[in-house]
Write a protein that binds this DNA or RNA. Structure first.
Lengths: 230, 230
DNA sequence: TTTGAATAAAGAAAAAAATCTATAATTAAA
DNA sequence: TTTAATTATAGATTTTTTTCTTTATTCAAA
């Protein structure tokens, strides 16, 4: 194969990769597990440990050790045989990979119970981003503060988004207004919406929507309980 | 094959099925989708529609129509070609399958923001179970009421669990006490724990633990946003 | 220094899940 | 009554994810 043929093959492979971007995406199950590793490792690090092996992590987190190795490999951190991983390095790499050490700013719309929970959640535990402003239409809530974040009148969203360049929004409104609010958010430049409502949002294809329904987990729990009693 | 040979084959198959119970378990991805179907169908039913086809559901929920058919088939409901499913029948079957129409009673421990959110959640939206009592150690919270449920002194858990036969518990305590509380709950007869803490609970194998970390979703969202901007 | 045990890493195999395809049933329109 | 279009259903295929296997590396002990 000469240099031209090679470059053709190369070009082909590149466009293939670009076409189905999914190929180089980290699998969702892995992404979901990564924070669990991070929080476990942080706990171990606080105990003064310096290294940890995949079998030990696997035992603690009740999962397959080779799964652990595969998952952690996305960070690029190399472990040493007979020793394991450097905990400090691994924590840092995980935080970096997950983006938990960057300031990912987010809006929150709907400061009801769940909204307030997420606002206070960010104080204690790393959620992955900082809610810089919450919005609501309820006069009683407006002006209040939860978890260090102010609740503002919803209409202020439009002014504020002009000045700030916020890409992430958390949607915890009632179902009925979810679609309208989501469209407002997209118009304000939001690129990713974490949707806690039961509304199936109809938005442009380039907008990332992460649907999170508490019912989904409840369904799995109830079913496994049913399975167990049979 | 005579009758005896047949019965041997039959016995073998039965024990196989019992051995790896997983085989007849409904896949977790399907279980997670079922509440989404239910809430969508309820919305459509309210509009007065009587039937709906899998392709229509698939278009609305942005998923493959054959996926819809496979998922809905777990309820046993049959659709008619060229017509689709009877919405009323399907809603009922889904509620029944998911156990959402039964009274699944649950305890909640840790009436902080997230706990309170779940308590108020059950009012508006079907969570799948009814939180009949919440427990906390915070004097300010004890005696209060959220979403129609009273917050009781934690120590009352032990008396109450003797009288009531509650199988499900929601764990929304701080991480530090999660393991201890979980063990208490198991001693009180709880069989399934919905764990919102970041603690990896170490409990008997027969106890069902559903770990739900907000960070897991956040991680996926952040990553997809990163993927999109590359 | 040598040997052996532990473990990461890479790749193969298996399992699980999603998607595609073909078939048969049904109904509305011709 | 017949035909064509729609759609559920079942099964095959593909893709994704997990688990298993092998290999090579490293460190501790002999």
């Amino acid at each position: 194969m000469n240099i031209i043929e090679r470059s053709i093959v190369f070009t082909f492979k590149m466009s293939e990769a670009r076409k189905n971007k999914k190929s180089d995406q980290v699998p969702e199950p892995t992404l979901r597990r990564l924070p669990t590793y991070l929080f476990y490792l942080e706990k171990i690090r606080e105990k003064g440990e310096l290294t940890i092996s995949a079998p030990v992590i696997g035992k603690a987190l009740k999962c397959d050790p080779t799964q652990v190795v595969k998952d952690l490999s996305v960070t690029g951190v190399k472990g040493k045989p007979r020793v394991g991983y450097n905990i400090y390095e691994l924590c840092h790499a995980l935080e970096d990979f997950l983006g938990f050490n960057r300031v990912n700013e987010a809006f929150l719309v709907g400061a009801g119970n769940l909204g307030a929970a997420l606002m206070s959640y960010q104080e204690r535990q790393t959620l992955g981003f900082k809610i810089i402003a919450a919005f609501d239409v309820d006069k009683d809530k407006i002006g209040q503060q939860v978890g260090g974040t102010h609740i503002l009148e919803y209409s202020k969203l439009f002014n504020l988004s002009n000045r700030l360049n916020v890409k992430i929004a958390i949607l915890t409104t009632p179902n009925e207004v979810a679609q309208d609010v989501a469209e407002d958010l997209v118009n304000c430049g939001v690129k990713a919406i974490w949707n806690f409502t039961l509304t199936n949002l109809d938005l442009p294809a380039n907008i990332i929507v992460q649907n999170t329904s508490m019912s989904a987990y409840a369904a799995v729990l109830l079913q496994r309980l049913k399975d167990a009693s049979e």
